[in-house]
């Protein structure tokens, strides 16, 4: 049993910059991101496709395709160790052991030509000094914990023999098999249907408590954030635009982008003809606008926003926003 202080810093990212050097130019996928994750907490990383949330997670795992991807600046402090400075050999000891990952598509994230048992045992054998037989026993144990019925039979199944929800459970069993302190979940429920989504989220919440681990949940689904996260960082165009606890975010979204996202959620308690959308599209990462990167879509942008980008500033305790005019947003909220 690890003895950790409730508020111990598990992961601290400081000014992370991950760029992709492509033929068309430098793509600043992650451009100065700061994040803090305490042990036992769930941090939500929210944003549209291409905002840099997955690149952030791949930077932590140091699994960026390189070239073209490269961490050019910043620190990724995991229990005080800077992951950005570790060798691949040192990283391999952490991956799957201290930090694990699950992915969006349970259909494609398990290897189709090996049994579930083989794939879970592989991780156990890599990080623990146990026999094959013991690894198999532990794999069955893991499958039981993630709620797969008759695990001693299922362990010899191939991924295609399981349903989507069962596959994601198997994937979670694999990720948690070595008792990691940090689980990075990249859109873990996006590919599942809604009832299964709820089950998987509940399972992750339960396991988080029983394992006392932290979760970094990457999603574009604010509903998922509301159900699971303690703190939330909203990303846009490679930067964090709003960073606060979940309550603060939903109670008082203070960046026009976050507000736009929330307005885009269909609501049953209001009678509106047409769903609200955010105007325009995500800017091309090779050609970001000058000034605030949201200025092409923002309803309250003015000349200042076209020229200069705001810093991430604390507007109330524990609530940071990257916007010049967060106060002006309040008036807009009243109109809507």
């Amino acid at each position: 049993m690890r003895i950790l202080d409730e508020r111990e810093k598990l992961l601290e990212i400081r000014n992370l910059k991950t760029y992709f050097y492509t033929e068309e130019g430098v793509l600043k996928a992650v451009d100065g991101v700061d994040l803090l994750l305490h042990s036992g907490e769930t941090l939500g990383l929210v944003g549209e496709s291409g905002c840099g949330k997955s690149v952030t997670s791949m930077s932590i795992m140091r699994l960026l395709p390189s070239p073209p991807g490269k961490i050019v600046d910043g620190k990724i402090l995991f229990k005080g160790r800077d992951l950005a400075q570790l060798s691949q050999k040192e990283m391999r000891k952490l991956r799957g052991n201290d930090i694990s990952m699950i992915f969006q598509e349970p259909m494609t994230s398990l290897n189709p030509v090996f049994t579930i048992g083989n794939q879970i045992s592989e991780a156990i054998l890599l990080h623990k000094d146990v026999t094959k037989r013991e690894a198999r026993r532990q794999s069955i144990e893991m499958l039981k914990k993630v709620g797969i019925p008759s695990p001693e039979k299922r362990i010899d199944d191939y991924p295609h023999q399981l349903s989507g929800g069962m596959r994601q459970r198997a994937m979670i069993a694999l990720a948690l098999s070595c008792d990691p302190q940090l689980l990075i979940a990249d859109e873990p429920t996006t590919a599942l249907d809604v009832t299964i989504q709820a089950q998987i989220l509940e399972l992750m919440n339960d396991l988080k408590k029983s394992y006392n681990m932290s979760i970094m949940l990457i999603t574009h689904d604010l509903g998922v954030v509301a159900e699971t996260c303690d703190t939330v960082a909203v990303m846009y165009a490679g930067k964090i635009v709003e960073y606060t606890d979940a309550k603060g975010l939903f109670g008082n979204p203070s960046h026009p982008y976050t507000w736009g996202l929330m307005n885009s959620i269909p609501r049953l308690d209001q009678n509106i003809e047409k769903l609200h959308t955010i105007a325009g599209v995500v800017p091309n990462p090779l050609d970001f606008p000058e000034g605030c990167k949201y200025n092409t879509r923002c309803p309250i942008a003015d000349d200042k926003c076209l020229q200069q980008e705001a810093e991430l500033q604390e507007i109330r305790k524990g609530h940071k926003v990257r916007c010049w005019h967060y106060e002006r947003l309040e008036q807009l909220k009243k109109v809507h």
Binding site: R92, S109, N111, F114
Partner: peptide, 20 residues
Amino acid sequence: DYITTARSKGQSEFVVVTKH
């Protein structure tokens, strides 16, 4: 994706290629 999964387990590149 399953190749990324294999890497995220901490498997070496050699085994990732020759096994997975």
